[in-house]
Design a protein around this nucleic acid. Structure first.
Lengths: 147, 147
DNA sequence: CCATAATTGATAACGTTTTTCAATTATAAA
DNA sequence: TTTATAATTGAAAAACGTTATCAATTATGG
């Protein structure tokens, strides 16, 4: 479900299919994480979550984020100013692009770093197993606001 | 000084030139960070540092790492299992390659992701300002130890 | 509807990082 | 060399994000 306009049912199904229960706190957190257009830290998820699930506890947020990551639905995001945020996981071979002004995130694909990997592999004699690629820039909106 | 066999004098000069004082704790930490073949976390720097500077305090390690990062001599390293380590900074357009078994780090260059950046820029209408690229794999030694 | 085990939220504990502050020390000027 | 000064230090305490504990609650299958 690459750019599913409403990924929430799929996420809930994934949770149930994995033997986990569907609870109000989990639904609230799934709603937030599946539809956010930017990476969120646990405290932000907590604040947003309490709007629709007033009794929500911060501990439950941590536990649920851990579970969603384990299920491959979200992933931890690394940025220069910290690595405490999560965003929905990439589909297949996708990477992240961030707006440095507003934090909005986008997935992209189409990189082909195979030749680079081969070159580096030859030079260093490492066996390359994986790669991380992230782009940083300004989104269209923030360009207009001449930031 | 890309692959200077002894980068320590240059680092010390950089510190002094920037108006900071050369103290025993700083010399010890520079010795460690300038010559380590892998990224280190503050507590590791502390343990190593106390071997040559017995009274060294952990707080001084944090403060000195912060300063070395500010001077562009070291940089924070991001890995799947955490982002609390530092390694010497890349020179110009270099990226990091890690051994997932032993943690050894290497700089490499020669990537050309300009075409990718142009493509993503056209697709997303973002202005791309910067990129992160990291490779993960097995170093020659760990391949031999069939890990 | 019931029994059961998963899940919850509050509290406390934990490890890392930052702040505070008096004592020490590198540096530049005398 | 000596002195004055401000930068730097280490110890202690505070702050912060995250994890563990545990009794109460709740989703689920029967």
């Amino acid at each position: 479900m690459p750019n599913d306009p409403n990924p929430i049912p799929g996420w809930l199904e994934c949770i149930a299919r994995s033997g986990y229960r569907l609870t109000a706190p989990r639904r609230a957190i799934v709603d937030i994480m599946a539809s956010s257009d930017r990476a969120l830290e646990p405290l932000q998820v907590y604040d947003l979550g309490r709007q629709s699930c007033p009794g929500l506890g911060l501990v439950t947020v941590y536990r649920t984020l851990e579970k969603l990551e384990e299920l491959g639905l979200i992933q931890r995001v690394h940025q220069p100013n910290g690595c405490h945020t999560y965003w929905r996981a990439a589909c297949g071979h996708e990477h992240l692009l961030f707006c440095t002004a507003c934090g909005r995130a986008v997935h992209f694909s189409g990189d082909n770093i195979t030749p680079l990997i081969e070159k580096v592999s030859n030079q260093t004699h490492f066996t390359i197993q994986d790669h991380w690629l992230q782009l940083f820039g300004l989104c269209p909106q923030c360009q207009q606001n001449n930031l």
